[in-house]
Design a protein around this nucleic acid. Structure first.
Lengths: 142, 142
DNA sequence: TTTTATAATGATAACGATTATCAATATAAA
DNA sequence: TTTATATTGATAATCGTTATCATTATAAAA
C-alpha cells in the first residue's frame, strides 16, 4: 500500500532530486498535523526536534510537496500561506471566519449533487471544485 | 436612491472621518473597473488622473471601503490582494475550464440555500462565498 | 569502497507588497 | 475665522517568502 513517503521518494527520484533526512522529517512533521497548517507551526515543531534545520529548507520542501500533489497551498486573508494535506483525505469544503481566520471543514452531499447538475447543463466534465464560505464564526459574533 | 458615494460619505461622517477629494477619486476609479481589481491597476489609472496621489492613500482608502462594506478584499496565490465591488452587483459562481480557461458564471438557488444551512449549523454569519467548479468544457471535450 | 558530479543545506541578504511614521496641510465644526 | 484634529505624500519599516552562495551530503558510477 502506497503511502506519502513512497510517493514523495518516487517523485524525487523521477525529478533526479534527492531523498534527505530533512525532507523526511519535514514530511513527518507535516503529517502529524490535521487540517490547515501554517509555516510557523511547522517551524516550531521542527525546531523542537532538530534546531539546526533552516527555515529555507522548510519552504523549499513544502513547495516540492505541492509539486508532487501531496499538499495543497492556500493563501488566506493575512497573506500568510497555509498548507493542507490532500492524500488519503476525504474532499471537503471550508467555512472561514474572516475575523479570526478559524477554518472549519464541512461536506454537503446535496451541494455536490447540484454541482454535477450544473456541469451537465453546461456540458462540463467536473474534475474538482473549491468552495469557501466566508463569514463570522460563533466566537467572534459574541 | 442611495449610491456608493453617499454610503461612503455617511460612513466617514459616522466615524468622524473626512470626505476628501482623494477619497472621492479613489472610489471613482475603483467603480470604473469590473470584477476583481489589483492595487497596481488602480494605481496606474490614478496616476494618469493625478500623479500626485500617493500609494499609501490608496491602500488606506481601500481599507476604509472594505470597512464600510462596499468592497471585499481577497488574497490570492501570489500573495497580492485583489479588491471586489460588493454593492449593486449580483453574486455569481464560476465554472472554469482547466484546459482553455473559459469561465462561465452561474447561480443555483438551492446551493445558496444549503450554504446557509451549513452556516447555521456551525453558528456562522455568512458574508460571502466563493465557489469554483473546475473541469473540461464542452468544446475541449470534443 | 572510493570517486565524482551535482543536488541540498543553512545562513542570511534580497525582495516586494503592505503598513507605520511624521511633518505639513486640509477639513469641518464651532 | 478659528481651531482641533484627520489626512496627505514621502518614505522608512515590517514581515513572509525567495534567491544567493559557500559548504556538505547524496547516489550513481567506477
Amino acid at each position: 500500500m502506497l503511502n506519502e513517503f513512497d510517493i514523495f521518494k518516487d517523485f524525487l527520484h523521477q525529478q533526479k532530486l534527492r531523498w534527505t533526512p530533512q525532507r523526511k522529517m519535514i514530511l513527518d512533521v507535516f503529517l502529524s498535523f490535521d487540517g490547515h497548517v501554517q509555516i510557523e507551526s511547522l517551524h516550531e515543531k521542527m525546531q523542537a526536534q532538530d534546531p539546526s534545520l533552516g527555515i529555507a529548507t522548510l519552504y523549499r520542501t513544502l513547495k516540492l510537496l505541492v509539486d508532487c500533489g501531496l499538499v495543497e497551498a492556500h493563501s488566506f486573508q493575512n497573506g500568510r500561506k497555509t498548507y493542507e494535506r490532500t492524500f488519503h483525505v476525504r474532499h471537503h469544503d471550508h467555512l472561514i471566519c474572516t475575523r479570526c481566520e478559524t477554518t472549519i471543514e464541512f461536506e454537503h452531499p446535496l451541494i455536490e449533487k447540484y454541482q454535477l447538475e450544473i456541469c451537465e447543463q453546461y456540458g462540463f466534465s467536473l474534475k474538482s471544485h473549491k468552495m469557501e464560505l466566508l463569514g463570522i464564526c460563533r466566537n467572534c459574533r459574541k
